[in-house]
Structure formats: C-alpha cells, structure tokens
C-alpha cells in the first residue's frame, strides 16, 4: 500500500534531499575506500554516523510537526519532485 499522507515545504525537501544524496555518496564511497587510507576512512566512518543521525532526526522532526498517519510496519517516503509524503506499508 502506498498512500499520500502529507507534504513538506520546499526548504524541508531540500534538506532531506541533501542528506539523502550525501548518504548515497558516502555508501558508494565506502565501497572503494579501505582502511589503508586511514585518514579518509576515519572521516568517512564519522560522516556516515553523523549523516545517518541527521537523516533520522529530519524524519522524527517532520513527523512530529505534521503528525503524519503511520502503521506499525510502514515507512514514509518522500517524492522529491513534488514534496509529497507517502506512507508505504507492504503488509497491508
């Protein structure tokens, strides 16, 4: 099931899009970076942690702000093109 449950502002969309892009970039960088490159590796590990936290914080903050509908096994998705938030639950 995929259901439209809300919408965020453009500025809010931009923020999560930046974090989403960064997380993807870090994940793909992790595939090629090894511990041999100690300095960059440490920077990557630290950034992955920080970006993950910011990412989760955004969803927590927005969920609290907008009070979106939720289900126990569902998760929210955002459409970057139109800022719409969907509830996705494949168990329903």
């Amino acid at each position: 099931m995929k259901k439209l449950v809300g919408q965020v502002t453009e500025a809010e969309r931009d923020e999560i899009q930046r974090l989403f892009e960064r997380r993807n970039g870090l994940n793909e960088l992790a595939r090629i970076l090894t511990a041999d490159n100690a300095e960059l590796y440490e920077k990557l590990v630290k950034d992955l942690g920080e970006t993950g936290t910011k990412f989760q914080n955004w969803w927590d903050t927005m969920a609290a702000k907008y009070n979106w509908e939720s289900t126990p096994n569902g998760n929210w998705e955002i459409n970057f093109d139109n800022c719409e938030i969907y509830l996705v639950d494949n168990t329903l």
């Binding site: 892009e21 960064r22 970039g25 090629i32 920077k43």
Partner: peptide
C-alpha cells in the same frame, strides 16, 4: 569516478552532496 568521489569528499566540496 573513484577519484572524483574521493576528492569531492576529501575536500568537503559542495558537489559531494549532489552529483
């Protein structure tokens, strides 16, 4: 592409967030 990814990240280049 590997070099780009590493260098954009190493330099904290703003494009690492959007490429």
């Amino acid at each position: 592409c590997d070099y780009l990814k590493m260098e954009m990240f190493r330099r904290n280049h703003h494009w690492f967030n959007s490429y």
